[in-house]
């Protein structure tokens, strides 16, 4: 190998070493745990015919989740999770929903740290007939 060939080879090996070190370091950094705040929209569905919402649920839930940064990045860039309030089995009256985070579909590697509100109530009332 000529001197210039040897120099360019050394330069390439150095550059590849830096790239490999960066990728190794970056993959470790992305595995570090962090927190992310998510705003989860609340959708009401399955209201039985003849019933109407007296007091609706909150429009959104504020959730703080923790997990590896790469999974948090995926959660932030991907489709936002939705909390579906299923009222198909509820009759007229007040229904309370506690620990709503259990019904939000999140990546299994993520842990819900806090949810606001932690519980809420929905009132269904009979539609007035003419």
């Amino acid at each position: 190998m000529s001197r210039s060939g040897k120099e360019s080879h050394t330069l390439l090996v150095r550059a590849l070493s830096v790239v490999l070190a960066f990728l190794l370091w970056f993959s470790l950094v992305l595995e570090r745990h962090d927190e992310l705040s998510l705003t989860v929209p609340v959708q009401v569905e399955g209201i039985a015919p003849g019933l109407t919402l007296g007091s609706p649920p909150p429009k959104t839930l504020e959730m703080k989740v923790s997990g590896p940064r790469i999974v948090l990045l995926r959660a932030r860039l991907g489709e936002a999770p939705v909390y579906r309030v299923d009222l198909s089995r509820s009759g007229a009256g007040v229904t309370t929903f506690a620990a709503p985070e259990r019904l939000v579909k999140l990546d299994p590697e993520l842990t819900v740290e806090t949810v606001f509100p932690g519980s809420f109530s929905v009132t269904l009332q009979t539609q007035a007939t003419k």
């Binding site: 090996v13 150095r14 070493s17 830096v18 490999l20 070190a21 960066f22 190794l24 370091w25």
Partner: peptide, 9 residues
């Protein structure tokens, strides 16, 4: 990062 690059090199 610098140490990793050095060791890899």
């Amino acid at each position: 990062l610098a140490l990793t690059a050095f060791v890899v090199y």
